[in-house]
Structure formats: structure tokens, C-alpha cells
Design a protein around this nucleic acid. Structure first.
Length: 332
DNA sequence: CACGGGTTTCCTGATT
DNA sequence: AAATCAGGAAACCCGT
């Protein structure tokens, strides 16, 4: 028996933001696990990725994790036994997938991601002059990202991998991936830029882009909280990424090359096997599976003050496959 | 107060 | 043998 009840009472913090659905204490178990996996600093060998791109991980110190979970829930009697029961309940909801035969090993499932509500919120974006701010999630933990800009009219594409680590500004187009002199400008100077002003904020800024330009942003990482709109001034400051580019050079950009002629803005384009459809706006949170692909575009006529934006969840997985090897290489 | 989601507890019965 | 895995049941917590 044991009515261990007792120390249950005040639920202190209640920031302000309308706590989403049911989310006691702000975090669900699977999110808690995810966060540990994402924060090497806070993960003293507690849980380890078995196959990050597949979302497979293993508990190294099951009881320690349980204690940590219990601490978060103000429950000192938490044990792995109990925590694991909760984990098993995730199978049915497909937040976790069963990994049999392997003790202490779990795998994130397809529902270990965002939901429709977040998606809708994500649709909001701001367009200011020629600055295009894409809504992203705060506290996004992007480790690496790949940018590919596509000039539909010229059927060219350029882009390449970069790494993000805290506050850094990165030019998108490095010399290594300039494929066509007439496509989007070179990275350093007036070209598109991905600017990370705060560790917890990611702002995508395009400036001096040409007409009929679309870009693809692949973010490898986990999104740890709700999307938040951000707005920033354009700051042009060439970041020296040459070294980084060379270091991270991968076949990604080549894969992303547009193969199929397509000059119609509204038509789908196919970039190296990735289908960019016109489906409903959607930016997915790919927890346990490393990344989200954002596709955005800009109106031909800037005076319209309207951006042509499309988000396609389908891009996620094909892109995931595409970048699978890159991610592994980068993750070491 | 009722109700539902998300655990938390407990437990019996396998597996490793 | 100890640690886990599997789930069913039911109690809890908490937000609506």
C-alpha cells in the first residue's frame, strides 16, 4: 500500500504564456528525455544516442535518470521501474516505438514532434521590406544546418552546410557551392544570411535577394519549445565561414541541385529528389529525428509585401534521408 | 464537481 | 538472481 501522498501542493511557477494543452510541470516525460539527449552539458552519461538520425537512444544510468525525472516532478520516489511504465505507454501513442530485444533502448516515434496547433502558429511570418523573417522556435537547438537557395527561373541552386554554435552569423553561400554566377548572390556581402543573434533564437534573413528566389533551410536539431515570432534588423556582416564550409563540405548541395525544369512559382519543384509541394503550411518539429526543413519563398514583386511561402512536411523525411550521411558525419 | 490526459503506483508474469 | 520488459488496473494531479 502506501499512500505516499503528502508533499503535493503548490505548483509554483506559472509564467504567463498560456500553458498549452495538458502539460503538467511544463514538460512531458518524453520531452524531458529528449532534452537530456540534447544537452551534453546536462547529460553526464545518463542517456546516449544509439542512432540519432533514427531517434534511437539508450539509458546508461536508468535510475539516475529516474531520479532526475522525479526531481523535476517533485517526486523523490521515482524509479526507473515507474518511469519505464510511462515510457511504455508512449508506444500506443507512437511517441515512442518499440525496440525489442534491447534493454534500456527506446526509439522516438513519429508523434514525438509538434502538433497541428503549433503548425498553425508557425504560419505567421513577417515581411518587412526585403527582410524576410521566418518564424522559428525559440531555444531551437540547431547544431548544423544546410541552406540551399534556388533560383527557379534559372533552375539553379546553391547552398551548403554550415554549423551553428551559439551566436554566429553565417553567410549562406560559400564559395564552394556557387554553381551559377547568376543565381543568388555570393554569401559574403549582400547575399542571404542566416543570422543567429541569440543562442535561443534563430532568425532567417534574406536581403538583396532576386526575384523568384526560393530557399530551403534544413535545420538539424531539436526544437525544444513553442514557436515564437521574431523580428530583426538586417545586419550585414560577412562572417568568415570559408574554413567551416570547407570543413563541413558535403554532397548535400549537390543533392539539392534542381534537376527538373520548373519556372512556375506555384508548381512544385524537385530538388534532388526532394519534393517541394504546395501542401498545407507546416513546419514540423522533428524530435528524436533531428531536423526540420523549412521552405520559403519570396514574392516576385517585393512591393506586394507578401511572401510566397510554402511548407511541406513531406520535405522532412526525404530531406532526412538525403542528409542522413551528412548528419552522421557531422555528429561524428 | 466531472472529466480527460498524462503519468504514477503496484503488481503478476515473462525475458534477459 | 537481479534488472528489465509488458501491460492491466487504478490512483493521482492538474487544467478545463
Amino acid at each position: 500500500m502506501a499512500y505516499s501522498s503528502d508533499a503535493k501542493k503548490s505548483q509554483d511557477h506559472t509564467p504567463k504564456s498560456h500553458t498549452k494543452k495538458h502539460n503538467p510541470r511544463g514538460t512531458h516525460l518524453w520531452e524531458f528525455i529528449r532534452d537530456i539527449l540534447l544537452n551534453p552539458e546536462k547529460n553526464p552519461g545518463l542517456i546516449k544516442w544509439e542512432d540519432r538520425s533514427e531517434g534511437v537512444f539508450r539509458f546508461l544510468k536508468s535510475e539516475a535518470v529516474a531520479q532526475l525525472w522525479g526531481k523535476k516532478k517533485n517526486n523523490s520516489s521515482m524509479t526507473y521501474e515507474k518511469l519505464s511504465r510511462a515510457m511504455r505507454y508512449y508506444y500506443k501513442r507512437e511517441i515512442l516505438e518499440r525496440v525489442d530485444g534491447r534493454r534500456l533502448v527506446y526509439k522516438f516515434g513519429k508523434n514525438a514532434r509538434g502538433n497541428r496547433d503549433e503548425t498553425k502558429r508557425q504560419q505567421k511570418y513577417q515581411y518587412e521590406g526585403i527582410v524576410f523573417n521566418v518564424y522559428v522556435w525559440k531555444q531551437i537547438q540547431v547544431r548544423y544546418f544546410t541552406i540551399a537557395t534556388v533560383n527557379l527561373s534559372l533552375e539553379t541552386i546553391q547552398g551548403g552546410p554550415c554549423s551553428l554554435e551559439g551566436k554566429e552569423q553565417c553567410g549562406l553561400n560559400g564559395p564552394a557551392y556557387r554553381r551559377n554566377a547568376t543565381s543568388i548572390s555570393p554569401g559574403f556581402g549582400g547575399g542571404p544570411k542566416l543570422l543567429l543573434e541569440d543562442p535561443g533564437e534563430t532568425v532567417l534573413i534574406l536581403q538583396d535577394v532576386q526575384d523568384e528566389v526560393r530557399a530551403v533551410l534544413l535545420l538539424h536539431g531539436f526544437f525544444t519549445s513553442s514557436p515564437v515570432g521574431v523580428r530583426r534588423k538586417v545586419t550585414s556582416k560577412a562572417g568568415n565561414l570559408k574554413e567551416r564550409w570547407e570543413k563541413l563540405a558535403s554532397p548535400t548541395a549537390q543533392h539539392l541541385r534542381v534537376k527538373k525544369p520548373n519556372t512556375h512559382m506555384q508548381r512544385n519543384i524537385n530538388a534532388g529528389g526532394i519534393s517541394h509541394g504546395k501542401g498545407p503550411p507546416l513546419v514540423s518539429r522533428a524530435l528524436g529525428l533531428d531536423f526540420c526543413m523549412l521552405k520559403f519563398g519570396m514574392a516576385k514583386d517585393f512591393s506586394q509585401k507578401k511572401a510566397v511561402t510554402t511548407w511541406n512536411p513531406g520535405c522532412l523525411w526525404s530531406a532526412k534521408r538525403l542528409l542522413h550521411t551528412d548528419i552522421r558525419k557531422l555528429e561524428g
